[in-house]
């Protein structure tokens, strides 16, 4: 078990389904982390503001609406603009395989689809926490490469 992290679990955009996000939040809590859930329909700006106010190390984005290709990179860009270069972004939801490399390139370090185990997400948190892989990092590493 790695160090305790502060993790934002966020639901960006017009997407009313948060069962998955809540299961992940619960799993991260049970893994010993402090999890702040934003609630539904947050804007990228609100998510970045939350990460800043809460001094979070990780931001997990959940999207089942199909808008991940716009929302995830927007959050990464706004984090960089806000100077939160050390914040590590990961995502989950319904993300087609052929859209993942673009998200990785924008700064998302892991993408978890249906069937992911909670222990895999915890392993990612623990490994990513030990690397310099925030949104401002040039390190090309991403989970599962």
């Amino acid at each position: 078990m790695g160090e305790r992290q502060r993790i934002i679990i966020a639901k960006p955009g017009l997407d009313g389904h948060d069962r998955g996000a809540k299961v992940v939040a619960r799993a991260l809590r049970d893994g010993g982390h402090e999890v702040i859930y934003t609630g539904l329909r947050r804007t990228p700006n609100q998510i970045v503001r939350t990460a800043m106010d809460e001094d979070a190390r990780f931001v997990g984005l959940s999207s089942l609406s199909g808008a991940h290709g716009h929302l995830f990179p927007t959050v990464c860009n706004l984090l960089r603009e806000a100077g939160l270069n050390d914040v590590i972004v990961f995502g989950g939801g319904i993300i087609p395989d052929d859209e993942r490399s673009a998200l990785h390139a924008s700064g998302v370090r892991a993408i978890f689809g249906p069937g992911t185990t909670s222990s895999e997400i915890l392993e990612f948190i623990s490994e990513a926490a030990g690397r310099n892989c925030g949104v401002g990092s040039q390190d090309p590493w991403h989970w599962g490469e």
Binding site: R4, L28, D30, G31, G32, H33, I36, Y37, T50
Partner: peptide
Amino acid sequence: PLSGGALLGDRI
């Protein structure tokens, strides 16, 4: 008390 983790939901 079991995991040492916490779910912080007041913001919602």
